[in-house]
């Protein structure tokens, strides 16, 4: 074992620079000072050689490992895989939804979610997600999902960055305070990047987008056009949290939906189901209070 006694003050100072010297992070003048010292000091010069050798040995050892070929294939297939319908429907949901349809038809109630244009979504980047015609909750949740995909993803709104003034101007006085409310209720680290009104399939949406690195969360509000969630489809988890929220997911996008007297409220994200539920259960009660105030 060697205990270096820094009797020479210059050695001591130069050694304190060696880490940054090794990382090529020294200022030019300091770098020159170190180089000059190393020329005349065998001890420090040997110390630097040792450190450089360890760095080289480590680099070589780490870089000699290769990623398995199968990993590349897995990633490629993730990227290339067409997003298929992956709607989480339980048998009881289908039955419940079917029962409500029968009831609705019997009572002569008719509505067309999404503004009623129907048909397949022709937008090039829209995710193709279909819902069975008799799945009422699914049809309603897809209203929010479609706007999120159309606006936040396909039109790249999730990559925008509006100032508070811009958001306030775009949302108008009626929705004053909504952005602040979302900001307060989102998990730590999320930033509100967009607050605006958008249109999809003749319907108007109030859309707030929050972002945290690769995570994108949309809060979407739209006025009801006769829709009503079947009570049976309320998510057990969300109901337990005291909020009657309905859920679905298409491919890797999670949707949670809630209705107030006049509005449909959606929380949509690329989070896991559990995380989307957490975000929704944090946002929904306040948003629903907010809407109740403007509905009065």
């Amino acid at each position: 074992m060697k205990i270096v006694k820094f009797e020479n003050g210059e050695c001591k100072r130069v050694r304190s620079y060696l880490d940054s010297y090794l990382s090529n992070e020294l200022m030019v003048e300091t770098n020159l000072e170190v180089l000059k010292h190393l020329e005349n000091c065998a001890d420090c010069s040997r110390e630097l050689d040792d450190r450089e050798r360890i760095k080289t040995q480590l680099k070589r050892a780490v870089l000699n490992v290769q990623a398995p070929a199968a990993l590349q294939d897995r990633i490629r297939s993730d990227i290339r895989r067409p997003r298929r319908l992956n709607f989480n429907l339980t048998q009881s949901w289908i039955l419940a939804a079917a029962a409500v349809i029968v009831l609705a038809v019997g009572l002569g109630i008719f509505f067309r979610p999404g503004g009623g244009s129907g048909g397949s979504n022709a937008k090039p980047l829209s995710v193709i997600a279909e819902v069975a015609p008799n799945d009422v909750a699914g049809q309603i949740l897809k209203v929010g999902f479609d706007d999120h995909v159309f606006c936040a993803i396909d039109h790249g709104m999730a990559s925008k960055h509006f100032s508070s003034e811009e958001m306030s101007e775009k949302l108008g006085p009626k929705y004053q305070g909504l952005v602040e409310l979302v900001k307060e209720k989102m998990p730590q680290g999320f930033e509100i990047v967009v607050g605006h009104r958008c249109h999809y399939k003749t319907r108007e949406f109030i859309h707030v987008i929050a972002r945290r690195q690769g995570e994108v969360v949309s809060l979407i509000l739209t006025q009801k056009i006769g829709e009503a969630f079947p009570a049976e489809s309320v998510s057990a988890v969300m109901n337990a949290a005291g909020v009657p929220v309905h859920e679905a997911s298409w491919s890797d996008i999670q949707v949670a939906g809630l209705e107030t007297s006049n509005y449909l409220v959606f929380v949509i994200s690329n989070e896991t189901r559990k995380e989307n539920e957490q975000i929704a259960s944090s946002l929904m009660p306040s948003v629903s209070d907010f809407l109740r105030r403007i509905e009065v």
Binding site: I75, D78, I79, I153, A158, G214, V216, D252
Partner: peptide, 9 residues
Amino acid sequence: YLQAWKSFH
């Protein structure tokens, strides 16, 4: 990679 792909836009 999946996250990167999702936010590639």
